[in-house]
Amino acid sequence: MSSWEQKHPGINLGTIDPEAHEEAEELVFGFWVYLMSDMIIFAMLFATYAVELRGIAGGPGPKDLYDIKSVSIETGLLLMSSFTFGMASLAMKYNPRPKFVVYWLIITLCLGLTFLGFESHDFLSVFDKGVGPSRSGFISAYFALVSTHGIHVTLGCLWICVMLAQIMVFGLDKDVKLRLLRLGLFWHFLDVVWVGIFSIVYLQGLAG
């Protein structure tokens, strides 16, 4: 097997760090399989949401609760953060100094945190309308789906912080690179899920 062979999804390190590249095959493939399993969790929550769309129980429905402006900003923030994470990955691959990786990760972290801020604002505005997840099956399912994504983003932000600390302590060594590869997949995965939430929950809810 030649060392530059594409071994796994996402950015490959074959040309610059053959040793890490070899080890990445198993680790990143395993992480990819985990993401597929996590995707099933989201799939089940999407299905539950679809079932519960009819469970409004006389309470507010999608049109009463969703705010397209806030959600569009969130989508922009998250897509942008995926771009900046991509920049971090490229910096990791092509720039031997960790400085740029750190900068791009910090920007990604800020975008992620701003996203979480807007999402909390969305949730609070639902509560402001005098209803919560206990009002109806529909609102329960909405909160379960969207906040599961939010919890993932929170853990992703925590992970970025840990990685920043690891870059400080270890520099860009092999383990740090392998972890950044997996964090990258995780971050882009959350983006993909968000695109699903944006189209199925928000766009469909406001259009229908």
Binding site: A47, V51, S136, G137, F138, S140, A144
Partner: peptide
């Protein structure tokens, strides 16, 4: 668990819960 702890309505008899789910 969310039904039981947070008074949500995924599978309850009332308020839009759906046991079949």
């Amino acid at each position: 668990a969310l039904d039981r702890y947070a008074d949500m309505h995924f599978f309850t008899n009332n308020l839009g819960g759906n046991m079949m789910n």
